[in-house]
Every structure is written in structure tokens, then in C-alpha cells.
Design a protein around this nucleic acid. Structure first.
Lengths: 251, 251
DNA sequence: GATAAGTGTTCTGGATAATAGAACAGAATC
DNA sequence: GATTCTGTTCTATTATCCAGAACACTTATC
């Protein structure tokens, strides 16, 4: 699993990229200080990345370029699950008027593949590509509930169970209890755990051999989701969307 | 502009990433042959990228992970132009029922920031992040028409004017003539140049100091776009969308 | 079922290349 | 106009990347 002979130079480049992602546009000296590297080394890495389109220079500042979006967009486009689910998530958003999301698991984390806003949708700070802990969202719990228990244990081991808010899952017992509930109901719920006043309903998408491919959700402000909706109209609609994707994936 | 002291190891990693993007999932030997590198070197680079989430391994095959989408999505999200234009492109798609696009220029190439499909939209093989030559699309011509002539010359020098189809622009004279027309009309047209039977209308978005930020377009099959539409209803709608973005960007 | 040819992975030391540090040029600040 | 910031260039030395060989497997082939 771990690199036996890591390429240290590459690791420095990647650290530089992530530093640039966190800081936004900035100069050579600031990056060199943040990464504890010499200015000349940082400069060499930056000009190399620039040459290949991964970094842009405007004046004396460097920033990430859209080449990452090209590579990322291309990998997303090559995923059958995304291709099939995309139109369904879109109509889910249009029909409910709320925010609809698509999440997959990768290396123990949740990755948003897309989000689609309906007419009235709240504007969360999620975006395509954003990573999230699986145990902190309805989407993540819908996925965890249908992974083998050993995989779930691995993921807890690797990523921990840090509490995002006081109301959220924070222990192994709480999580497994929650996952049991998800399996019983068929869908996962987040009632203000991640964000006060926000309710989410998520359903898993499984392939023909019952392996979970990802999850679909709708997020809406509590003011527009009655307690009846939360266990009636909305889950029905989300489950139906997930079901259509399953049918289209399995031919 | 060019790296004086390029980091060769980083360049090898980037070459590996692009090879992986072109080939899709594949093994160590295939990559090593394609890149003319030793197997052990390729293996070291792959495990390093995997360690940081940029590459995934399934069985004996390696493939790109969604970390690129994270970095790319984050850079896109940090662009004010995208933030402001995104809802407008979406409603342009919904109201016309066709395919709406958003393009920016980067390093002499066009980069699609997003595409939004209306009810009847054709399904082109464009995707967020895709790069295209500027002179081959209506979107690109809308941008070129509002760049300083010296920039346009630089871009021609750097990227050439390769013809995509027999009908498309293929010489400096043709291009500058076309750009003149775009400036006169206020919008750019692609009438089957890029793809037989596909008509596109694109309008530039400029900031308060008249610098072009990008372009918005609608693409539709010729069967649904009359000659009247091509110079009436559609450009009006696209220009209006571009105008709204300009107003919202300049406060 | 034995052999051969494929795969990915590990290991090593010697050739390669990354980088710290100093020096430079230019901008901004005081 | 001196000082202190920038980003950039250069070089020598150190660190490290990588070819090539050997390994453990799996898959073909006869």
C-alpha cells in the first residue's frame, strides 16, 4: 500500500500544488517559507509546472491553472457511474427544486462527483471534487451501510471518526447503529448533523452484484421539509432516482 | 516564459499522468514502454502518486484518481467569473432547451469551465476542463475578437491555425476577417464548421475595463435553428446572458 | 504438467539531477 | 537615496532517481 521507494521530488511538487490550492495566488517567498524549501527550488518547481500548464503566473504571483480540471474532468467523464447518474441527479434537482448531489467513495473518503441546483436550492459550499468524511453526511452513510463490515473498519482505522458537530456521529457504536438504520429504511438521513437547519436524504446505488457504486442525495432547508416529507415524499423520489441509475447501469 | 532549470523528475511524473489520461487504466509495463522509462522508475512514480491520492490501483492496473478533480474543482470554484456566470449559463440552457457552454482562455487555448444541458440538448463530447483551439469554435472566436491584436498574434504563433474541418478557419487572413465580423455583430457564429449540422452562437463577457473574461454559447442542431434564429432570437438570448454576467461582475 | 513468457515488485550503487546558498536586478517603502 | 523587500540566475555538492538484474507470481503454450 505504501510507496517503498517514493519519488521525493514528485512529493515536493505535490506538496507545492496543495499549498497553492490552500493559499490561492501567492509569491515564491511565501510558498518557500510555508513548505520549508529554498526559494530557488520552489521557483524551479513552479516554472516546471507552468511550462506544462498546471500553474499560471500573473505578475509576480503564481496560481493553479485549469489543467487540473482537464485531467479531473477527463477521469470523471470516463466513469460509467457518472455518465449514467448525471442526468438523473439533474432531474432530481429540477423536480424537487432543491440541491441534488452525487458522491462516490475513494480511498476511504467521499468525493462529490457533481451537484445540481434546482430553482430554490440552498447554496452550500460543496463543489465537484470536494472530499468529505463519509461518516459526516447522509451520502457517506448510505455508502458505508452497504460496504462489507471489514471495509468500514478499515476506513474508520484510516480516517477516524472525528465529530463535525455535537449532533453528528462520533463513535464506532453510534456509526454502526446508524448504518443498521440506513439498511432497514433503505435510505440515509442527515437532520441538521452537518449543518444546523439542513436536512439531507441519500440513497445508495448498487450494481448487479450488490456492490455499492455511490450515492445520490437531496439537501434542503428544514423550513421546506416537513417531518412527513423527511420519511415520505423525499426519500421516495431519491430512491426512485437511485433505482433508475441501477437499472441503466446493469443494462 | 520557459523554465530555465526544469525539474526533470516532475516532468516525468506529469508525462506519466498524461499517458494515464490518454490510455485509461493500464499496467506498469505498458506505461514504461509508452514513456520509454524503466519499469522500476514508472513503478516508483505510480506508487508515489497513489500515496497522495492522485492514482488508484485496482488489481494490477493503475488509473487516475479523483484528486485531480478536487484540485481542478477548487481552482474553478475560486474564479469569480465562474461563480457569477454559472447560474446564467444554467438558465440559458433551461430556457433554450439546448446545450449552453462557458469558455475561458488559458495559455492560448480555450478551456470549457462548464456545460449545461437543456431538455433537448445534443450530447457533444465536451466536458468541464476540456481544452480546444480557440480558432475552431464560436466561443473561441468570441474571445479572440476582443483580445489585443498582439495577443492574437502570440496565440497563433504558439498554437497554430490547424484546420479541424474543411469549412473551418485555416489562415491568418481568414481568422482576422472572421474576428472583424464578430466585433461588428457583437457575437460569433459557428455554422457547421466544427461539426456538420451543429450551429453555435457565442458572446464575449468583458469586465469594466473592457478586458475579455470569457465567452458564453448555445449549441443546437441545425434542424432546430432556422436562418432567422441564427441571427435573431438566439444571439439576442446569448448576448443578454453575457450582459447579465457583465453587470454582476462589475457590481 | 512442465516450460516459457508474461506480469508487478524489490533491490542496489553509480550516474544524474535537485537544491541550498550566494549574488543579482528590480520594485516598493520609508 | 538607502533599505528591504521581491523574483530570478548561477554553481557546486549533496541527495536521489533509476537502469538493470533478480524476484515472486500468474498466465500461456506445447
Amino acid at each position: 500500500m505504501d510507496a517503498k521507494h517514493p519519488v521525493r521530488t514528485t512529493e515536493k511538487t505535490l506538496a507545492l500544488v496543495e499549498e497553492l490550492m490552500d493559499r490561492g495566488p501567492c509569491g515564491v517567498t511565501e510558498l518557500a517559507n510555508g513548505l520549508e524549501m529554498g526559494k530557488s527550488a520552489v521557483h524551479n518547481h513552479l516554472t516546471t509546472l507552468q511550462k506544462h500548464g498546471y500553474v499560471l503566473k500573473t505578475g509576480d504571483e503564481y496560481q493553479l491553472g485549469l489543467k487540473f480540471l482537464e485531467v479531473g474532468g477527463s477521469t470523471r467523464k470516463s466513469m460509467e457511474f457518472y455518465q449514467v447518474a448525471e442526468p438523473e441527479v439533474k432531474s432530481l434537482a429540477n423536480e424537487t427544486g432543491e440541491l441534488a448531489n452525487l458522491l462516490v467513495e475513494e480511498q476511504g473518503m467521499g468525493v462529490y462527483l457533481m451537484r445540481s441546483k434546482g430553482e430554490e436550492a440552498v447554496d452550500l459550499d460543496t463543489y465537484a471534487g470536494l472530499r468529505t468524511y463519509l461518516h459526516t453526511t447522509a451520502l457517506g452513510k448510505a455508502i458505508l451501510a452497504h460496504l462489507p463490515e471489514s471495509r468500514v473498519e478499515e476506513i474508520i482505522e484510516r480516517r477516524g471518526l472525528e465529530r463535525k458537530t455535537p449532533r453528528s456521529v462520533g463513535s464506532r457504536e453510534e456509526l454502526f447503529e446508524a448504518l443498521e438504520g440506513v439498511r432497514d429504511r433503505g435510505y440515509a438521513i442527515d437532520d441538521g448533523e452537518r449543518l444546523e437547519g439542513l436536512r439531507c436524504i441519500a440513497a445508495p446505488v448498487k450494481d448487479s452484484s450488490d456492490e455499492v457504486l455511490g450515492a445520490i442525495s437531496v439537501s434542503a432547508p428544514a423550513s421546506r421539509v416537513s417531518d412527513d416529507d423527511l420519511h415520505g415524499r423525499l426519500p421516495e423520489r431519491v430512491l426512485s432516482a437511485a433505482n433508475v441509475v441501477e437499472l441503466n447501469i446493469n443494462y
